[in-house]
Design a binder for these strands. Structure first.
Lengths: 218, 218, 218, 218
DNA sequence: CATGAATGAGTGTTCATTCAT
DNA sequence: CATGAATGAACACTCATTCAT
């Protein structure tokens, strides 16, 4: 016997038609980050999103397409956060750099979104297309941002001359490594020397700033 | 081009039990690095080693055991390489640190073996056992080594006091990130700012050493 | 001969989840009885049930679980059949015993289900779990039933005192042997002395009853 | 360096060339009885016989041929034991029957050889050829023997008239069941009501003899 | 739109059998 | 004769994908 739908209550099926893809992407993000592409089963993604396996394929042509959509969705969000801050900053470049790193951790590294950086690094060889996309959308802008900051330091007479492209990555690498570590080794090795992200960044920032600065007067 | 069989040439069913594991490990290393653990098929490993699937299982109980053997073969032996150098080194600690990093790249980072560091980071959550093995066999000794060097610098009055555990990772992180990068993004993004590993390490080392050093007496 | 699809006929991908397990169990019973556990391939079970291999694993976690389900389906239910009859029986214990044996043959021995008793005896050592299950679910209740009957005979002064545990099996053994025989030797040896189960049971029952009875007057 | 063989000591390889097949058959008997045909691995048979897998195939064309040889070898041995005893026996037929059963257990049922009866029953459907062989070599002579004994009893006025073919199996069935039980359920179900073979046979014999005898007093 | 029953290609692993030494 | 390294067919089980309802 079919139950008569009451106009005031939404039908069971109606729940959130247009919200579906988003729920699926969120569930997929969690699982891909946790298990990687191959070990994630689409059925589990569907289940976590509260729909059936068939429904997932209604929105995404294949598991690969789902993966790409997850990455694209989450990549777009995190671009161009710090550019404004740099432009507005008044203090020393060392302080600016330290501030940016801390902000980066608070706004990105500590959130679930950092999982997709890990994801991309992990699966890059299986999805070159994604890797290139990431390169363009995230790496390029990010390196430009840091390059600008280092340039600012040099121009203002605070920093030494640098091997610019590599110096940029010397600044970024520990941050990128940190999110990889957080999503790979850290969950498995609970035993020793648990890294405290904030302290790690503080130590890295201090070493960087000192390393970048011109010798104290000389 | 068919090769003419020479009477002294080995026959089709050549006995070379001693050589097999090595050949299989090499083939496995190649494929695991190229495709990751899950995407590598044991049959392909066997084929690349020039044997049948059954033969592989003659030497390795399972795909996972094969993987562990690859790790042991390629990582565990690299570990204690630097310890000796540290003990014998006479010069300044800054030079020692720079030297160690360059050696590490030459002996490990630049080789195919570095691919499995990337692999482990990528698949750690699916193989916690492997991750822990890596932690014990590689990460722990590596951090101990660096800690010893930093301690040497402090004891000799060259370096400042440090937040030791995090400083160690500040030194290591860019190196570990470099192998990740080399095996994930680098192959896909041939376009811009190709990182030159030696220059990157040089820049990192210089920044680190400057950052670690006491202020030039001021 | 292609069957003309009638509009009311079920479509190719018919939904009949409720019917599937039963069809699979029946096919499995046939094949397990015919070939034994190890020699039966799940794919063939599925094919005989008209479904694909994957579908079988939709309903049974493993080949072994399928086997257990077959056992449960066909044996466990047969158990308590006779208990009621015993309780309600009014006549002599000798007649009761004879009656029970005949009923057992009609309801179990003569059916396909008896094949799994043979199967279990054959493969018991490879599946101790199954053997214990059979022991608990079938052997124990069965021996209890017979013990009750013998006790009834003794209590009513019809039967002699007995070495009870072994007398029980003296009663049961020929029946159990009969199903073994039916499913092992009988199909191969069509030649001589084909055993007629009903007559065999009649002869066994008569001998048993006479053997159990007190000496006529003495 | 090859060791020079001393003439007085047998070479390692020479050990027992002609004993090999026998050792293999013995090992195979043990394992087939214990695990059944499918679950027995030829490598284990070879290992237990102290030779390599290849050597086994030097003597037996295939696993199936090995199985058949095991059965044939052990079947031949056990025929025509009791015929002489029957002919020479002077006492009552009831005592003769009881005596035969006890002897059968002592000389066959209790020995490893009984394992092949179990084996044949278990694998009969997979090896019809074997089953027919067993029928001719063992079952036929055995039933003839018992038939003779029953005939003796009737002719001497001790036993009643019988449904002869079925009476024969009524006598034999518990014995055959006993060896099946011993090699299947008994090893798994150590818990309750462990059957004592001698007592079981005693109880069976007593019931049979009483059941076969003419009514006392007449 | 949503479902979930059904599919079948694909994978790791086993093991009887072969054959060069 | 004996070996044991090598083979490859076979099998249980998985899971992305489809489609009738």
């Amino acid at each position: 016997m079919p139950r008569a739908p009451s106009p005031s209550a939404p039908h069971r099926r109606e729940r959130r038609k247009e919200a579906r893809p988003g729920e699926l992407l969120e569930a997929a993000l969690d699982l891909f980050v946790e298990k990687g592409f191959a070990a994630t089963r689409v059925e589990e993604v569907a289940a976590r999103a509260g729909v059936s396996k068939g429904t997932l394929f209604l929105y995404f042509q294949s598991k690969e397409e789902l993966f790409k959509a997850v990455v694209r969705e989450n990549l777009s969000r995190q671009v161009s956060a710090g550019a404004a801050e740099v432009a507005a900053y008044k203090g020393s470049t060392g302080d600016l750099l330290t501030h940016l790193m801390q902000q980066w951790w608070a706004r990105f590294g500590a959130t679930k979104a950092s999982g997709i950086s890990k994801l991309i690094m992990s699966e890059a060889t299986n999805f070159p297309e994604i890797a290139q996309f990431y390169q363009q959308e995230v790496v390029e802008p990010g390196t430009r941002l840091i390059r600008g900051v280092l340039r600012r330091g040099i121009d203002r007479g605070e920093f030494r001359e640098l091997d610019m492209p590599h110096a940029v990555f010397a600044v970024l690498a520990p941050l990128l490594w940190l999110v990889m570590w957080k999503h790979s080794m850290a969950p498995c090795c609970e035993v020793t020397h648990r890294i405290d992200p904030e302290k790690f960044i503080a130590q890295h920032a201090e070493l960087m700033v000192r390393g970048l600065h011109k010798e104290k007067q000389s």
